[in-house]
Design a protein around this nucleic acid. Structure first.
Lengths: 355, 355
DNA sequence: CTGTTAGCGCTTTCAA
DNA sequence: TTGAAAGCGCTAACAG
């Protein structure tokens, strides 16, 4: 695929990158003046015409500052890191896209990595001014020693007791709202395909589910609450375990959309028709939800369309908060207050007669 | 969300990061010796016991090298950048995950960004040793001026005439294989929901489709080849345009899986049953394909399961190639040779009688 | 308003 | 085998 022995070749395929000194020379000024002019330094002190010469020189040369050098001097990197469990689950991808947009707006580059915080930290930490963690954090050994992290760290969509603040959407309210909606349709026997209970999000969604049932004096049956991973296989197996029981629930709150695809597959296998025999409601209002059969009723947490593409508000807020933290703020856990809403589609119906 | 005025606060929440000098002091050696010892420099020249003292000191202090300083000195960053159109489409996400794994294995950090190459370049280029571009590149104005890129650049899953090499899987063979499979079932009237024709991948898939039809002396009807974006909406509208025609095809090759979800929705709307009235085959063998209804027959290009999760072989190879390029290699366009294969599921059947 | 200067933390000759 | 020293490109005092 590549020629085998080429060791001595020049690394840069084209001309070497111009340095600030080159710009200064071309503009006929000192390098320090060029530095101030190009950075709009607060104590600018550069005449407008001088500055224009410098900017023209920079453009003429295609000058781009060397961030390593700036970083060495200023001890900041203008980058923010985010650690996700993976890229294929739409929840994380949405957060990352929102975060990326907001970071760019604030003059930061977002570095996206996948894995556990422990794995990613050594690589990421020295290259960024702050780290967002959207991976699961509750299991032992996935979080780094707090003493070994030297930049602000913010948990996204989870909070944990401990030194690190978290920013979350109100998943509990979402779980509660979804459950109340099912109850309002007449359902009494409601189960829950829960997400991995080591994630804070899943625990909060489940807590909302349980709270709603209790409030309406409906029974909470532990056998109808089954945990599964946030993907099709997780939903498939958890739903199988619930739906093979006798009696079985007439409605299910499912942890996320991918799992719901698995739940639908399990229901088909068992000859259970959605929504006639079984109502389904879930989270993550991404476009897939409205194209599958039946279109899935979801709870939308604040992940609105901003601009031309779906972009995660949570990701945006996480980055704003992080930029404040980099500036020295020490926020406590924060809850994004936007009220969740049910997006009606066709996966819910009143319970079958007789039940 | 954050306390408003905290300007003077220390930036680092905990102790300052230890420097190499601290390690050297603790080990009682010169900083340059510590540098060599920790990096396993080729001309090592450090006694084993000295080296052990240094390593122990590094661990005791939790030393992590400052990449900005190293980078400034060595003019390399140990990072590779990848530019994707977005994170929500599983194709790109898979490539990024594979690339990330391979980069880590080679001692590189993968920086993931989304957007057009032109947008991302200034931010990315000075921070990485090489750039992978998996965004669309054919439209005018999305690629940067070749003279302004000073690091190796590799196009992933596309190739274009011009200065930048590309690495692709054999999408044309995939399109051909998929079409031949449909023909082998007896289909004669076959349409194609094509991806955006400004992407090289889509053009190659389409070329394979057309080639297979011609080879078998079957008619190629332009009205049955409709272009749509790589998402549910794209598939929905393109399929609508094809299936509302009279006569309509009995089978469709669809550009990707998300689009196929849209095609299924369009077929439902028109009362067309899959696979009885219409066979569907697509690309992207991700887990969603086997859980939706009906499970979708796909062509698998080399994106095998490596390790515990689906990881893109294409992403891995792109990174290996890039690491060679960083070392000076100048590869030509490369085609990953693995033969595509049909993954049989339930979206294909012989054409309905009479046709 | 502009120029001089002293490093940021690390790597890499080169001399001891 | 180790140590001394010169920067990498940029920023930020401070002096002119």
């Amino acid at each position: 695929m590549t020629s085998p022995k080429q060791k001595g070749t020049k690394r840069n395929p084209s001309s070497p990158r111009p340095r600030l000194q080159d710009v200064a020379d071309l503009a006929g000024v000192d390098i320090s003046v060029a530095s101030r002019a190009l950075r709009n330094a607060p104590e600018l002190n550069v005449r407008a015409d001088t500055r224009q010469r410098i900017e023209e020189a920079a453009i003429a040369l295609g000058y781009i500052a060397n961030p390593a050098a700036a970083s060495l001097k200023t001890a900041r990197t203008s980058s923010i890191g985010i650690i996700l469990p993976n890229l294929v689950n739409p929840g994380g991808a949405l957060i990352a896209e929102g975060a990326s947009a907001q970071a760019a707006a604030g003059g930061y580059l977002l570095l996206v990595t996948t894995g556990t915080p422990r794995e990613c930290l050594a690589l990421l930490e020295p290259r960024v001014d702050g780290i967002l963690v959207a991976s699961a954090t509750s299991e032992r050994g996935v979080m780094p020693d707090p003493n070994s992290v030297h930049v602000p760290l913010l948990l996204v969509n989870r909070h944990e007791p401990g030194p690190f603040p978290g920013i979350v959407v109100d998943d509990e309210a979402g779980g509660r709202l979804a459950t109340e909606y099912l109850i309002s349709l007449g359902h009494v026997d409601i189960g829950h395909v829960a997400g991995p209970q080591q994630t804070d999000t899943s625990r909060r969604r489940r807590a909302g589910f349980v709270a709603a049932l209790k409030e309406k004096m409906l029974p909470v049956r532990p056998a109808w609450i089954v945990e599964g991973s946030y993907d099709e296989a997780g939903g498939y197996h958890a739903a199988g375990a619930i739906l093979e029981q006798q009696p079985r629930p007439t409605a299910l709150l499912v942890s996320n959309l991918l799992a719901t695809v698995g739940v639908l597959a399990a229901a088909r296998r068992l000859g259970i028709e959605v929504p006639r025999d079984l109502s389904l409601i879930t989270f993550d209002d991404v476009s897939l939800a409205k194209y599958i059969d039946p279109p899935i009723t979801t709870v939308r947490l604040p992940l609105p369309d901003l601009g031309r593409r779906a972009v995660s508000d949570l990701g945006r807020r996480a980055v704003s908060t992080m930029i404040n933290m980099i500036g020295g703020a020490q926020p406590k856990d924060a809850m994004i207050a936007t009220a969740p809403e049910v997006v009606l589609r066709q996966s819910c119906a009143p319970p079958p007669r007789g039940q």
